[in-house]
């Protein structure tokens, strides 16, 4: 009984690592279709990763060990995060060790590490990107915390699998606060993953870039790991969103093989829909000026707090 849970846990992590570039490729494909361009194949991110792993890694002369270690720390943090987020089964042995607040801490660790590495070389672009990233980060964190608090209040637990358990087994609950939280979450997801209203992942030659500016100095396997880690980050965020707002179909206590297969199919379908929706949002919105970013994230924070308020004041009445 215990052993099978560990097996599923490992399967889930492996699945996240394997599927993450696919999600990135799918979003890129949807974006191309929406913009009337011929789309790159779905496997494009895998090909790029393979190419990068075969290339020589060039490191600047002044680079400290931190610079070399950062990609591994980043990738490790994202893999660990993937172990906490329930995607196909909710009985995750690793998830007991860390709740959703620790998850945010994990993301913050990765961010700080990446920002420090970007400043390490001392190029102008690196430190500019790092400073911008930290600005976005410190504004996004309270918003995502508030989104989590919404779910915690609703289900009385801070562990993500617990939330999903409760949610998936009471499908009739549509609390209005969930809508507010979902909107806030999507905004944070866009900001945290360098998506279009805040940052454009497709540019390398503009003064507006944030994420790309930080990784300019990396090459070869280091760059491959960073790219993979950012794919994983997007995958993790999407899965958190699915877990919090659309958890139906997940294998609740299911250790039976058929049930997990069904959950996997449901997950892939949901990821496909979410990816297409993300591409749609990105195609519809224009990139904000950097100084509008605080406004955007303040709005996300506001929505999450409104969700809390609505829940506290309207939800309290119904139960009475």
């Amino acid at each position: 009984m215990k052993g099978i849970a560990f097996v599923w846990q490992l399967v889930e992590v492996a699945l996240a690592i394997a599927l993450a570039p696919l999600l990135t490729g799918w979003i890129a494909q949807c974006r191309s279709w929406l913009q009337n361009r011929s789309a790159p194949p779905l496997t494009q991110p895998y090909r790029m990763l393979r190419k990068l792993f075969h290339k020589e890694a060039v490191v600047a002369d002044h680079a400290s060990p931190l610079f070399r270690a950062a990609p591994y720390v980043l990738f490790g943090a994202m893999v660990l995060a993937a172990a906490i987020v329930p995607t196909i089964v909710t009985d995750l042995p690793f998830a007991r060790a860390a709740d959703a607040i620790a998850l945010i801490g994990l993301f913050a660790t990765a961010r700080v590490c990446q920002a420090l590495a970007a400043m390490d070389i001392g190029t102008a672009f690196g430190s500019m990107g790092a400073r911008r990233e930290m600005m976005i980060g410190f504004l996004a964190e309270p918003a995502i915390l508030m989104v989590f608090f919404n779910a915690f209040l609703l289900f009385g637990t801070t562990a993500l699998p617990g939330v999903v358990d409760h949610y998936a087994s009471h499908p009739s609950v549509i609390d209005p606060s969930v809508i507010f939280a979902a909107i806030g979450f999507v905004m944070v997801l866009l900001a945290e993953n360098a998506r279009i209203p805040i940052d454009n992942p497709a540019t390398h030659l503009e003064l507006t870039m944030i994420h790309e500016a930080m990784v300019l100095e990396y090459s070869g396997r280091h760059l491959a790991l960073i790219e993979w880690a950012s794919s994983l980050k997007l995958f993790n965020y999407t899965c958190i969103g699915i877990a919090l707002f659309l958890p139906w179909g997940i294998a609740i206590h299911g250790t039976s093989f058929g049930y997990v297969l069904f959950a996997l199919a449901a997950l892939i379908a949901k990821l496909a829909v979410c990816g297409a929706a993300l591409a749609l949002i990105e195609s519809l919105s224009a990139k904000l000026r950097l100084f509008r970013a605080p406004e955007f994230l303040a709005l996300a924070f506001l929505f999450a707090v409104l969700g809390l308020l609505v829940h506290l004041l309207m939800g309290a009445n119904t139960s009475a």
Partner: peptide, 21 residues
Amino acid sequence: VIELLKLLAAGMLLISFAMLS
């Protein structure tokens, strides 16, 4: 119906904030 009304009310509040911004 109550759940639905609460949802609509939340939407109303949302639109008010959108108007504000």
